[in-house]
Structure formats: structure tokens, C-alpha cells
Amino acid sequence: MFRKFAFALLAFVLAAPSLHAEDLDAIKQSGRLRIAMSGQYPPFGFVNEQNEVVGFDVEIGSEIAKRMGLRPEIVTTAWDGIIAGLLAGKFDAIVGSMTITDERKKTIDFVGPYYHAGPGIFVPESSAIQNPDDLEGKLVGVILGETSAEWVSTRKGVSTTTYKGLPEMLLEINAERIDAFVTDRIAPVVAIKERKLPLREVKVVNHGIPDEIGIAIRKSNPALSKAIQKALDDMMADGTYAKISRKWIGEDIR
């Protein structure tokens, strides 16, 4: 009986690595890299008039996949459930402008960062709001699940309402249903400039919010992490990253 148990235990130990095989192995077998984002965050990821998901994150993620010898497959999903979707295996990576935080690193790993950002407060041009303290008593729009939403929640006397993405907040502030909105500053700055919107930015300094944006993958995947990082590094070295960034953002944001 003991010998049978010992052989069974040995067989289990020898087989254990296959139970925790690298995601990269399965990804290579499938021939595709499933890349998730909200699709609600122009110019990083959004649906165009041809019903295609396009933007900075789309091109960065697609280029990484191609350099890994894989076919990119873009998946759009609600931002507040995107980490749960990654952990459930619905996609392989999140290239969706996700801020690297200690809290998130408890459940997922990050590659990068691939750019830096920070929160901005956006208000109508005619607004009396001049600094973060002026948000007291105001109704502020935030995107559910963003680090900037957590920052707003710490502000005294500020009421918040949540949205799925930037397009909704732009509509709401234009309709005067919110007094301001707070999100990572790059996307709104680009939207205001390109669309000549009657909005302005209130700068947030010493916010204490992490500003490194990374590519999220499931934990315990060093080979996948290394492969994505190499593709990203090569893009930055040969000018491809800068070209994509200038196309969508107007500058190199790394």
C-alpha cells in the first residue's frame, strides 16, 4: 500500500508543472494573442464609424502580437470587470491603459510600463473651479475602476457618479449634468484639442497616484512577460512606438 502511495505521489509531483504550464505555450498553440480593453477610451481604444476598434492601445497591442509571431485579437469588455475576465482566461493580456498599482499586483502581473499618465480635472471653460479643493460640493464624473476614481473618493464633500468611459462623461458635462470629471489626463486633452471642446483642464499636482501604465497578464508567466517586454522594447528602439504614439496622441508619451 505504501509503495502504491509513493508511486502515486511521485507521479503527481512529476506531473505538477504541466498543471501550471505557462500561458505562452497555449497562446503559441492557438496562434493568437487575445488583447482586452474597454473600447470606451479614445484615442487609446474606441469604436470608429466603420465599427472597428482602433486607437493607440489597439496598435501597440497588435504590434506586440505580430512581433511574437501571433495574430492579434481585440476583445472589448467593461472596465470594472476586466481583471476578473483576465483571471477567468477570457483573454491573454490587457493593453488598455491600466495603471500599475500595488493593489492590482496582488492578483495580476504587469509588463512595462509602456507610458506614464496622471489624473486631470476637466471642467467647462466658464467653470469657477480652479483647483482640486474647489470640487467640494460638486458632482464629479469618474470611470468605474480607475485609480483616479479612488483619488476623487478621498476628496472632502465631493459627490461622484460613475461612467463606462470618456465619451459618456463628455456628453454629460456638455449637458451640464455634472460639474467636472476626473480621469487620466492624456485622452481628454487630446479630445479637447481635436474637437475644439469648450472645456479646460485643472492641473492636479502632488496627487500621490501611481502614474505608470502597464500591460496586465496573469501571474506566474515569466516567459510570456519576457516575450511581451522584448516586443515592447524593440518597438521603442526602432521607432515604431514613437510613430504610433504621434499618430494617435500627437507626441511620444513614453
Results as ranks from 00 to 15, higher is better:
11 A>M: 10
182 V>G: 04
154 T>E: 00
75 V>P: 11
167 P>V: 04
51 N>T: 08
108 I>E: 07
243 K>H: 10
136 E>A: 14
209 I>T: 07
224 L>H: 03
51 N>L: 14
224 L>E: 00
124 P>R: 02
96 G>H: 03
154 T>I: 07
243 K>W: 09
234 D>P: 12
121 I>H: 15
13 V>F: 12
190 V>C: 04
112 G>P: 05
72 P>N: 01
67 R>T: 01
173 I>R: 14
84 A>M: 12
116 H>L: 06
11 A>T: 11
94 I>C: 15
99 T>G: 11
153 S>A: 15
161 T>Y: 08
63 E>F: 05
237 A>Y: 00
98 M>W: 15
139 L>N: 01
195 R>C: 01
210 P>H: 02
169 M>Y: 03
167 P>D: 05
172 E>F: 07
248 W>R: 06
212 E>W: 04
68 M>A: 07
79 W>Y: 15
147 T>K: 14
159 S>Q: 14
68 M>V: 09
178 I>D: 10
235 M>W: 06
173 I>G: 12
58 V>S: 13
128 A>Y: 07
157 G>F: 10
179 D>S: 11
60 I>S: 03
196 K>Q: 11
26 A>V: 10
4 K>R: 14
133 D>I: 11
49 E>Y: 03
214 G>R: 07
125 E>M: 13
106 K>L: 11
59 E>Y: 09
237 A>L: 04
6 A>Y: 12
167 P>N: 08
113 P>V: 00
212 E>Y: 03
138 K>L: 11
151 W>Q: 07
217 I>P: 14
124 P>Q: 01
14 L>P: 04
168 E>C: 14
124 P>V: 01
56 F>V: 07
129 I>N: 01
